[in-house]
Computed example of a mutant assay.
Amino acid sequence: MKFGKLFSCLAMAGLFLVVASARADQLSDIKAKGTLVCGVVGTLEPFAFQDTASRDVVGYDVDFCKAVAKLLGLKAEPKVVSLEARIPELTQGRVDILAAVLGYNPSRAEQIAFSKAYFVSNQSVAAKKGAFQQRDDLAGKRVATIKGSSNIPLMQKVVPTAQLVSYDDAPSAFTALVQNKVEGYVLSESLMRRFIAKLGPSANIEVLSPPVGREYWGLGMKKGEPALEKAVNDALDALEKSGEAQQIFDKWMGPKTTYQMRRDFAVEQIKG
């Protein structure tokens, strides 16, 4: 009798593991529905923003989402998420992956899985021209950040006495700098230079050296999904090998754009 009960319990446990394993295969579920839902931040040009003519969300992150989806045999479905809600949207299953200016840090890596780096960003501080000679002169000063940004721990490390003031989005933080509500603003250099270029010489703002840090951005995925993680990384490797990764960069930030940037990185494993 006891043996029979033990056998029954073992059988049920085995069935549970099989069901759990099947449910854990997110890649199969995504392929079954035929679409890859990508969480993107829709207010950060050139990474993801609304095109004024088509009203579609476009940008560097969107193009990577579409390119990865295509290699997986799927249709991309970009979904706009806020910076603060990026990770909850992923972990709660409302998006499949994040292509959302997601910089790697150990705290985030405890919550989600990161793909290989598809963008590497210098994080820099901007201030009014002539106000400061270099980055560390902002010690004790008010510096704008974006809520939930990975720039916050970077700035706390290199200029620990800076008074960080968090804003809901990048435009609000930049406006605070323009209006002298803060003395500095820390952000990805590519985004910062876009804001400065839009205002032109009247902005009277410059990027200070040295950078706060160099940040590796990955596509975010749920933990415990090795098949999806491998498929996404294989797709990124293929985009690098084919030259499409370079083409996407040149389209949005290359020498012929407002940013006039050169790609000094390649798709690579993020080293935590």
Rank of each mutant, 00 (worst) to 15 (best):
L44C: 10
W252I: 08
N151P: 05
D51W: 04
G224N: 08
K230Y: 02
I87T: 11
K31T: 07
K147T: 15
V95I: 06
V158H: 04
S115R: 03
S150A: 15
D56P: 01
Q179F: 13
K147C: 13
V101I: 12
L90H: 01
K271F: 08
L239A: 07
E183Y: 09
M221F: 07
L102K: 00
L10E: 08
E183I: 13
E89C: 07
A170T: 12
K181P: 11
D56A: 01
L154A: 11
S188R: 02
V178R: 15
E89V: 06
K181L: 10
E84A: 12
A131T: 04
G213K: 06
I152S: 13
Q92G: 06
E183A: 14
F265N: 01
P211R: 08
N105M: 09
L187M: 15
R142D: 12
F119E: 02
L71V: 00
S202M: 14
S188V: 15
F195L: 14
L177Y: 07
E244V: 00
V125R: 08
V18T: 06
Q156M: 06
A76D: 04
R108G: 10
V68I: 10
G42D: 01
S150H: 14
G59E: 12
A127R: 04
V125F: 06
A117L: 02
A22K: 02
F195D: 11
V62N: 09
Y167F: 08
A170P: 02
G42M: 04
N204Y: 07
D264Q: 03
G243Q: 08
D51A: 10
D237G: 03
M253F: 05
D169F: 09
M192D: 05
E215S: 13
F265G: 01
P171E: 10
A139L: 09
A238I: 01
L102S: 04
A113I: 03
S121Y: 00
R108E: 10
A13N: 10
A203P: 14
C38N: 05
L36H: 04
W217A: 06
A235D: 00
L27C: 03
F119V: 11
